[in-house]
Design a protein around this nucleic acid. Structure first.
Lengths: 136, 136
DNA sequence: AATCAAGCTAACTTTTAGTAAGTACGCACA
DNA sequence: TGTGCGTACTTACTAAAAGTTAGCTTGATT
């Protein structure tokens, strides 16, 4: 009977920094801790389309359909969902002009630029090194 | 009737680098292109548990169950699957000692160390900035 | 008169992730 | 000597996420 029992202490591992309490660990941000909010943010940022949206927006403001065309393969549903998540995290700002047809612009916030730069470094590394990687 | 029709050219966007052919774009690695292998690798590396495995292994060699305990919340199934994917990409090396009980060690390859460092930068940024982020 | 464009949302289906349990073998405890 | 423990997995099954299709509104194009 193997199950994912709730492991009470997140810091039994000698290699991880030691915190006096779980609260402290969460405040500092510890992705290895199950309940830490940083893991949620990490999931948003590293989500399949989140990564691409962030990198795309580093090039500047985009409209919804511009992003849709630039990010080859994303569905409208997923793009909308991803943008909403990134907006609620404070990484993306949404400007909507109430005209017909609708005109909505998306751009990175200052905070968004900072994460996006980290993400871009990762993406750049991958793009530059695909050649070295085993492709099954 | 809105659908994700196959968009033939991946480079109709003026902001993206221009390539003579789709083949060239794929060779260079363009994550915005649907079929580009770099996007597959990106998905492996940024997968929910992939990120955590890479960062964990930056601290050194780990056994399966050490990783399981360190990465709070991962199931054995997902950990095994993630490790297999990262191994087949050439980021992780697996050493199995045929003893009972089994003893298996995982460590990053030189290539793995390089990606993991990029991933760690992102993770570090998030851990250090969780406080500035809106938590719904 | 029909089609397209914009930026979404709702309903439905498929894919993926997660959960529970099984496997093999030896060791320790009682 | 029998029950349970720890190791590194895999196999079924279920829950959740992602993908697909279609609908909306209004004006311009074909």
């Amino acid at each position: 009977m193997k199950k994912n029992g709730p492991i009470q202490s997140a810091n039994t591992d000698p290699q991880s920094a030691s915190y006096a309490s779980i609260t402290e660990a969460l405040a500092a941000g510890n992705v290895f801790a199950d309940q830490c909010p940083s893991r949620l943010i990490l999931n948003h940022v590293t989500s399949r389309w989140g990564v691409l949206v962030l990198v795309a927006l580093l090039a500047g403001t985009h409209r919804f359909s511009e992003l849709r065309r630039k990010i080859n393969g994303v569905s409208e549903r997923m793009l909308a969902q991803t943008l909403q998540t990134l907006e609620s995290d404070g990484f993306v700002a949404r400007y909507s002009l109430p005209v017909v047809p609708p005109h909505v612009e998306y751009k990175l916030t200052p905070l968004g630029i900072e994460v996006a730069e980290q993400v871009r470094n990762l993406v750049d590394w991958i793009e530059q090194n695909v050649g070295r990687i085993n492709l099954g």
